[in-house]
Design a protein around this nucleic acid. Structure first.
Length: 244
DNA sequence: ATGGGCACCTGGCTGC
DNA sequence: TGCAGCCAGGTGCCCA
């Protein structure tokens, strides 16, 4: 452990508790990685800038290396996180009951994330649909890039009050969320600056973005300049012609 | 219950 | 070249 001060301090007992345990499986819930061990589970979040790599154990730590988990054959599972927005918890209980996970909504690829669901949970909601797509209690694990990309694919204006969406529009949104995520996953993710996957390679989805970070550039569908606005202190990009 | 805003942190880029 | 200001893949928490 090189630096415990992440979003929450890594508990000092974590290295001791984890030492010697086999990794049984690695799962995901929203943007949390769940590393299942024999007697417990590591709950890891990479924040905005975190990365996890398997490296030779002798690799010297970088300036932002926070933790090395030494693996068996001379390798290390290394957590780097420049901004320290990531987090690491360890629990011996069912991780689904952990305070960070227990209130999370369905996964986008879960069958329960469908038009009827989205319609129901948005009734009476005045917040903009874009902001609700970023709310993990409505949809799990959707981030700023793909919320914008999904709404473009669904042809929905990100400023629309969620409660005004029709059932048909909710169907478009749920399908568009999955389509955007599927396309991005296939491309290995979106590298804006320094993101690299577990293999150390950047993601190729930047080239396929339809609105995100394309302010002023022609809409790929109708050539109208893409607009950038700020919602909840986050950038939103959209086409004012295609999206209503 | 809901929505809005803040906080946490580092680093890269832009423009003066 | 230096420096201020702005921006960034997130999200829990506090307050009205």
């Amino acid at each position: 452990m090189y630096e415990r001060r992440l979003r929450w301090p890594i508990p000092a007992y974590v290295p001791r508790q984890v030492a010697g345990q086999h990794i049984l499986a690695v799962q995901r819930r929203a943007k949390y990685l769940l590393v299942r061990l024999e007697r417990g589970t590591l709950i890891l979040h990479l924040g905005m800038s975190g990365s996890l790599r398997v490296l030779p154990a002798a690799t010297p730590p970088g300036p932002h290396t926070r933790l090395d988990l030494l693996l068996d054959p001379g390798q290390t599972l290394r957590l780097d996180d420049p901004r320290r927005f990531g987090s690491l918890h360890y629990t011996t209980a069912d991780p689904a009951h952990h305070r960070l996970l227990r209130a999370l909504a369905p996964e986008p690829f879960d069958a329960t994330f469908n038009a009827a669901y989205l319609f129901r949970v948005t009734r009476g909601r005045h917040a903009a649909i874009k902001q609700l797509l970023l709310n993990g209690r409505l949809v799990a694990g959707l981030g700023n890039i793909y919320a914008a990309e999904a709404l473009f694919r669904a042809r929905i204006d990100p400023r629309r009050r969620a409660g005004t969406l029709t059932l048909a529009e909710c169907a478009r949104v749920t399908r568009a969320v999955r389509a955007a995520l599927r396309a991005a996953i296939r491309a290995g993710g979106t590298t804006l600056r320094d993101y690299v996957g577990a293999d150390g390679h950047p993601g190729a989805f930047l080239q396929s973005l339809r609105v995100y970070q394309r302010e002023g550039r022609a809409c790929r569908s109708c050539r109208t300049p893409i607009r950038r606005i700020v919602q909840g202190q986050r950038s939103t990009f959209f086409c004012p012609t295609c999206q209503h």
